[in-house]
Computed example of a mutant assay.
Amino acid sequence: MTHTSKRFRSSSIRSKLILCMVIIACIGVLLIITAIIAYENTTAKKEALNELETLTSVIGWNSSPHLHSMTIKLQKKY
């Protein structure tokens, strides 16, 4: 046996329980952090897509009269 396993076996029940609670708490914190990162990533993608759709709509709306006038000019030319 290694020194660490001997030390663990000889430690008190209280120390072992505290170690288990710390490990469980760390796992819980890691899970929460992972969930928050996943949520933020998904939300950021949705917000970026929404902003892009709005921007393309505005650009299309603003360029529509120019395209129409160019079409009229081309029709008169030919």
Rank of each mutant, 00 (worst) to 15 (best):
I37N: 10
L17S: 12
C20R: 11
I13L: 08
I24P: 00
T34L: 07
S15C: 02
G28P: 02
I36T: 07
K16R: 14
S11T: 15
K16Y: 04
I23D: 03
R7S: 13
I24Y: 08
R14T: 09
T34N: 12
I32E: 04
I24Q: 05
R9W: 00
K16D: 11
T34R: 07
I33Q: 10
T34C: 08
I24R: 02
A38E: 09
V29C: 12
M21S: 09
I36Y: 05
S12Y: 01
S10Y: 00
C26M: 11
V29L: 15
R7G: 08
L31G: 10
I33Y: 04
R9P: 01
I13T: 10
F8H: 11
S12Q: 03
K6Q: 14
S12C: 08
S5L: 10
F8K: 13
I24D: 05
C26T: 11
S10F: 00
A25T: 13
L19W: 03
R14F: 06
I33G: 04
S12H: 07
S10T: 08
I37G: 02
A25M: 01
I18A: 10
R14A: 13
I37D: 06
T4R: 14
T34I: 05
S11W: 01
M21F: 10
I18M: 06
S11E: 09
S11F: 05
L19P: 00
A25P: 00
F8A: 14
I23H: 08
R14W: 04
I33N: 11
R14P: 00
S5F: 06
I27R: 05
G28F: 00
A25G: 13
I36F: 02
V22R: 10
R7D: 11
G28L: 01
I13N: 11
I13R: 13
G28A: 03
S5P: 00
R7L: 14
I32Y: 08
R14V: 11
A35D: 06
C20A: 15
S5E: 13
S5Y: 05
V29D: 02
I33E: 13
L31P: 01
L17I: 09
I37V: 15
I24N: 06
C26L: 14
R7K: 14
I36C: 05
A38Q: 10
I13H: 06
G28R: 02
I18V: 08
T4L: 15
R14C: 03
L17N: 06
A25F: 03
I13V: 15
I23V: 15
I37Y: 13
K16H: 09
T4E: 13
V22I: 15
S15G: 01
R14K: 14
C20I: 12
K6E: 12
G28D: 01
S15Q: 03
I18K: 04
L17V: 06
I37W: 09
K16V: 04
T34E: 12
I36G: 01
A38K: 10
L17G: 04
L19S: 15
L17Y: 04
R14L: 09
A35E: 10
I18P: 00
M21H: 05
I33C: 10
L31M: 11
I24F: 12
M21G: 12
I24V: 14
S10H: 03
S12K: 08
C26R: 06
L30E: 02
L31T: 09
S10M: 06
I37P: 01
F8L: 07
V29W: 03
C20M: 15
V22Y: 03
I23T: 13
I24C: 11
S10W: 01
R9Q: 12
I27K: 08
F8C: 03
A38N: 08
